[in-house]
Write a protein that binds this DNA or RNA. Sequence first.
DNA 1: TACTGTGAAACGGTTCACAGCC
DNA 2: GGCTGTGAACCGTTTCACAGTA
Lengths: 222, 222
Amino acid sequence: MGSSKRKRDQLDARDVPKAVVSRLSLYLRELRRLSRSGKATVSSSQLGRLLGFTDAQVRKDLAHFGHFGHPGIGYRCDELVAAVRGILGTDLGWNVAVVGVGDLGRALLGYQGFSSDGFRIVAAFETDQTKVGTSVDGVAVYGLERLANVVHERQIQLAMIAVPASAAQVVAEQLVSAGVLGIVNFAPVTLSLPDGVSLVAVDLATELEQISFAVANRNSSR
Amino acid sequence: MGSSKRKRDQLDARDVPKAVVSRLSLYLRELRRLSRSGKATVSSSQLGRLLGFTDAQVRKDLAHFGHFGHPGIGYRCDELVAAVRGILGTDLGWNVAVVGVGDLGRALLGYQGFSSDGFRIVAAFETDQTKVGTSVDGVAVYGLERLANVVHERQIQLAMIAVPASAAQVVAEQLVSAGVLGIVNFAPVTLSLPDGVSLVAVDLATELEQISFAVANRNSSR
DNA sequence: TACTGTGAAACGGTTCACAGCC
DNA sequence: GGCTGTGAACCGTTTCACAGTA
């Protein structure tokens, strides 16, 4: 019943640690699984154990946003799913564009996890004229020159960039001037964007390098 | 001249902050770009500015591993590229497997960024028998039942999991018992693995949720 | 009893500021 | 003058421990 201690627009994303927000995503994923498997409530220690966090961490994270738990009981799964969706804003239903219809772009277009959680991919963009006019997984592929138009028409707020590194900065700028508010960048370059546009970067090579470091430098002890 | 203050196996990955290691990857990416564009040296403040970090952060990060800079000069790009590769262990040349040849698996198999940096994808695995025996981007696709054999034969140390969530835990366990030391997991589940196996998780829905949060909760002020 | 919510303590990472060096 | 390397101060996050509640 809206037990949150603030209205949506009274919270400032800037005073919530980034780490808290990414754990929130994991809580949500796990809560849904629990809910699907018929579990009505979960305690902070159970939820923490499932994800490798402490119970105190789970409670502190959630306490940033309100009072969602029930002393002696724990958290009701359905209730907390709804609360976390509200915090993350996935209950708002975003329209999303994918730019670049190579292998990675196609993977994004076909990914099932998005639609079930408030993200509707409503357009794809590509320079390769042989792909323009086709549709991939039910999503129309437009030429890049139509980007601004389509972003307006379809009211697209978020975008994922899956183009070669050399094209990513230009694409990002086009997206921003068309009015896109948030970008997930899969191209291996650092984008520079105006303040006010949210950016998350995912670099596949970087992920493997993290593993390389861990494996190369782990001590034989333990 | 091996100016590093330690031999490779004397460093323990556990006493280097995770955040440092992921910035190292970004330094490497940027240093290569600078090197390619003909720049011989770079200062900590230049490198920091390009990536959005402070100069002190860049120096502190590198100081974890040795003395790579030249007072009055900065860092020589080529030299530092070699040093960072040594730290990350990408100079060791890893053999990598991809499990799951759906859209995402195919994207990983076709990704150019890996081969140029010490990661050789040498095998793919799939349950779908119509894909087994084919090859994708020059990489042979094997049935999952051959996983242990092929991992041994091809001396595979690292793997990327791109299978549905429901299959990921079982696949991970098979990889680990076959001797794989590090895993990048793209399936949207939390894997539980024995200590000693390195794990990085990438969840595409989670990345979009971070953006959703930032866009939904940013204050109108500023 | 079982659990949440939360101040206070502990920890760890980042920034500062400067000594040392080219 | 320009730049690195680094101890010390600072700041934010995590953990602890317990008061409060059903």
